[in-house]
Write a protein that binds this DNA or RNA. Structure first.
Lengths: 195, 195, 195, 195
DNA sequence: CATGAATGAGTCTTCATTCAT
DNA sequence: GATGAATGAAGACTCATTCAT
């Protein structure tokens, strides 16, 4: 059986990879480093992942799934758009602290690897935006709107959120997540002029 | 005179580098490619720039200056915050089309090169945010606010703008800049709920 | 075990390197050449030695140790200074034939690599001179002398020996080692006038 | 006329080259450095010397001539071998201080450049040894000897002299040239045992 | 003649990937 | 399955030499 132990090792590689890709970026990450962090031999990685690129994609993919599922899970039970968005911001904060690179990669979806991977990442990003769009659409009292406008709004929300989170996380400073989330969502929903 | 022709060649290298860094990212860019694009020999680059890293920094630096000066220049004559922000969005659109990497690097300020360069880029970013903060502060009728709040707003505005621009430019699709700018600024100033 | 085979490969690299450095000198020696001579891939060298410079230093270092130990070993059982010096000359002859560069580098201790390595080599040289000084001091019937004088004598002996050996080895001609050694030692001990 | 000014420039290049080759060794010497030290443009060197290698050879050649002529000149008027050898040592000391590389290159005559140059340098060395041999032969009261023995003695004398000089010059320490010269010559003529 | 900007051949070094143990 | 020693393709960078001005 390729059961439990196998799966565990796969996970430990993925985790180590996520952490190092996050901190150093794709090109500065060496397979050696990942192997060391995972406490295994370099060659072993290749028994679970075809190549560095594939490993990277898996990191993004599973990170994404974790992110998407996390959001879906967190917002259960809330029905107020404002509350929901705040929850998303807060969850994204803690996610960024652990898997910074994943979120940043998705946000900028740019060819740090190669053309194909860039497009592939872009597809993942679309999923995030779609989820946010869907959430906005479903929890708004406004009359049905142009799909493009909702999408635009989703991009705006995601962009501003990432921008602020990145800044805070980068600085590694103490700050009140609750307060900042409130402010971000307020700007998004009510506008800077009104707050 | 070491004047004109020298300066021209320096510029052509910078331009070629900006273009290739933009499209392929730092690690995928070969000095050879830049030389070819600039129509010169590999070694010549090293007469003008100490290393690949230095060249990259210059690209960011001069791109940044061009961006900042461009904004300052474009907003002259406007006094309405909304108009000013729209101008910024529109200018950023056209800038991204030409120097995508610069803006993206600044937005994500991440170690695609090395720790030091990351911090260095972060410093450049601060300049952009400062400018936006200043613009917001000076053109708002609201009673004087907490500096941190203005800064937060600047990060939000910059983030949402980049997020949307990136999407549009990436798709390379036709769209109405005027309309999109209007919408972005409206969300920022009046909130999604109100538009 | 990382034992035997590893050590063997390390040795084969060292040997190949010594041979090529000896014949072509440091700057004319290519890592590629060393790899080929050792019958391995270029990259393998870097598993055992950090850089060309480090490899070079190891060649000198291990060559030196071999030389010093060789001398110490050969002179065992002799108590007559003249006999001892002759043994040293003879051993140095055979050593130069195999590891010419090592001895020459030590003799001239000059910056063929860089300032630091030069000083490092100079330190190695001091060891050789010290050994010769010690041998002279211990096996002389003369009344205790000024340390500086003994040192000067050691430099003289080492210099004349290298000078002659180099000439002979360079010519690759047949000659009577026994006879030449005898003559060198005679000049050193009794003076040219007396022989 | 290619007269005076030309000759002056040629000299200044040669002088600059000698100084830098001496201090840094052939491979670490850049044409640029030589040009700068000579206060001229890089390209100008090539109007006087075909290549770096040729320049190097000229440096050795003219250095050698200067050395040989210097010796011949200094020993005029002396007839005692001991006095003559002392004069040679003293002159060599001051020569080494200014043109270290030349003397060292001649002493070790080794392929820091290439096989051909090595042989070429070896030929120069032969001239020095011949001169010393001739001096020894002419100023000795001993009955005519085997040419090879005189040659061997010359190699010994040259080797020990260089060995000591190098050490002293390398240390850049104060020392009594007169005294050291006396000791070296004494060892050579009367033997270490007798002094 | 003098110059120094331009050039590209030539090298060291890294690191993803393979494969024998 | 797991390992890590071996590999070599790939790329940044140097510097002697050329040649247009």
């Amino acid at each position: 059986m390729r059961g439990e132990k196998q799966e565990e090792k796969r996970s430990s590689i993925l985790e180590a990879a996520a952490s190092i890709f996050s901190n150093k970026g794709y090109p500065n990450t060496k397979m050696q480093d990942i192997a060391e962090k995972a406490g295994i031999g370099k060659g072993t990685i290749y028994q679970y992942f075809k190549s560095k690129k594939h490993l990277f994609r898996q990191v993004i993919k599973e990170g994404m799934n974790f992110y998407l599922n996390g959001i879906k899970n967190e917002i259960k039970g809330y029905s107020d758009l404002k509350e929901i968005l705040k929850v998303i911001v807060k969850f994204s904060f803690s996610f960024m602290e652990k898997h910074g690179h994943v979120l940043r990669m998705i946000a900028s979806h740019r060819s740090i690897v190669d053309e194909n991977t860039m497009k592939w990442i872009y597809d993942r990003k679309t999923k995030v935006i779609s989820l946010i769009s869907k959430i906005i659409a479903e929890n708004t009292e406004k009359t049905p709107q142009n799909v493009n406008d909702i999408n635009l709004a989703a991009y705006c929300f995601f962009g501003m959120m990432i921008s602020v989170i990145q800044e805070k996380v980068f600085h590694n400073r103490e700050f009140d997540i609750e307060e900042v989330s409130e402010k971000i969502v307020n700007i998004f929903l009510r506008g800077y002029d009104k707050i």
